[in-house]
Design a binder for these strands. Structure first.
Lengths: 199, 199
DNA sequence: AATTATCCATAGTGATCGATACGAAACCTG
DNA sequence: CAGGTTTCGTATCGATCACTATGGATAATT
């Protein structure tokens, strides 16, 4: 799992996996059938052991704002754990892949989409109980949060520390506050420039 | 360039490049020496032809808020151009790489770091001319913006439309407004929960 | 017009990929 | 303790990787 996490699916050779696990080729193939199912096993294990913060954050009986805050701060911690590869396996596993490995790339994309959908579901629940700012689009804000987490994953991979990721997360959370104070925003192609404060 | 952009450095084989360019092996090696220098040529070309929006946005004689706004909205457009691969080559070129290709991965990481440094430089200029909200950390906010752009790159790769990316960008810009109204934030480990508005 | 020189596409190089077939050691049974 | 079976490690499989050497066609020169 760590090797796939660090180098991605295709760049991780079976030789590296064999050496890391101390197994001979037949042992690997008897245990995991082939490389693809081994990777899928690593995916599910990653989901079970490293991503618990997300399901806990989204499932906790707390206000929506607090849930989102736990989600982003949990990501900051999970993406920069000492002794573990930086970022998220769902992002670095196969962001770009050869045509032969596109099935794996699509599967990881599905994981990312599912994460975004889980966020949207939590936001929709908040909307239902009146816990969400009025002018806030559930899908749009979910895409923003998922995007921020993906971006944190890359920043973590580039060596960002826990503190830096937490700062990033809290800056991102600021959008949650302001979004509630605005009208529903309908982004248009033409510029509505100059509307930003200039300090 | 498009092939490297779509599949990344390692997953793009010379056979694919040959077929796309209609060249024979000796022609490729006479023209580009080897795969690595060919990729670097594609990188500089990408920087010249696809990333102009960023240098324009950061160099334009406009208030800092407008510059940042142009940066993010430009990214929304650049990362979802029809007929081009989604996202940013600097991100998808080699986010995860084999040990043999780590030189390439490090080079792309340097590009990303340079982008963040350019943002920080623009923010510092804004701070110097009093154009930036008081309690806003230059480095922290630059890391946030670079992270958001990286996240947009992944969302684009996952099929996000221009409009969705623009919405994401404008949501991210909201943090710019609120950051100015707050005190300088010093993220701590312990929870300062419940401080978020709940709509 | 004959010969030499130059260029270029095809074929092939060693290395490594994921995946397997064979020989040896160990183990259970009689 | 012997025989048969099963397991397991080594050596290797075909395919593909980035990359290069060689033969043939073209062009230039005498």
């Amino acid at each position: 799992m760590h090797l796939f996490w660090e180098h991605g699916y295709e760049a991780t050779s079976l030789a590296m996996l064999r050496e890391a696990m101390g197994l001979t080729p037949p042992q690997i193939y008897n245990a995991f059938t082939d490389k693809e199912t081994l990777f899928r096993k690593a995916l599910t294990r990653y989901h079970q052991t490293e991503i618990g913060f997300a399901v806990e954050a989204l499932g906790a009986p707390v206000p929506t704002g607090e849930a989102i805050r736990r989600l982003l701060l949990g990501a900051a911690e999970a993406y920069s754990r000492p002794g573990k590869p930086g970022g998220c396996l769902f992002v670095s596993g196969a962001l770009a892949a050869s045509p032969q490995a596109q099935a794996i790339a699509d599967e990881l994309k599905a994981y990312r989409k599912a994460s975004e959908a889980a966020i949207a579901e939590r936001l929709a629940k908040g909307r239902a109980i009146g816990d969400l700012p009025e002018g806030l689009s559930v899908e749009g804000f979910a895409k923003y949060l998922a995007g921020v987490m993906n971006g944190m994953s890359i920043q973590a991979r580039d060596g960002a520390s826990v503190e830096e990721l937490r700062t990033l997360a809290q800056t991102a959370l600021a959008a949650f506050a302001i979004e509630g104070q605005k009208q529903a925003h309908h982004p248009r192609n033409e510029a509505d420039a100059g509307s930003l404060p200039r300090g």
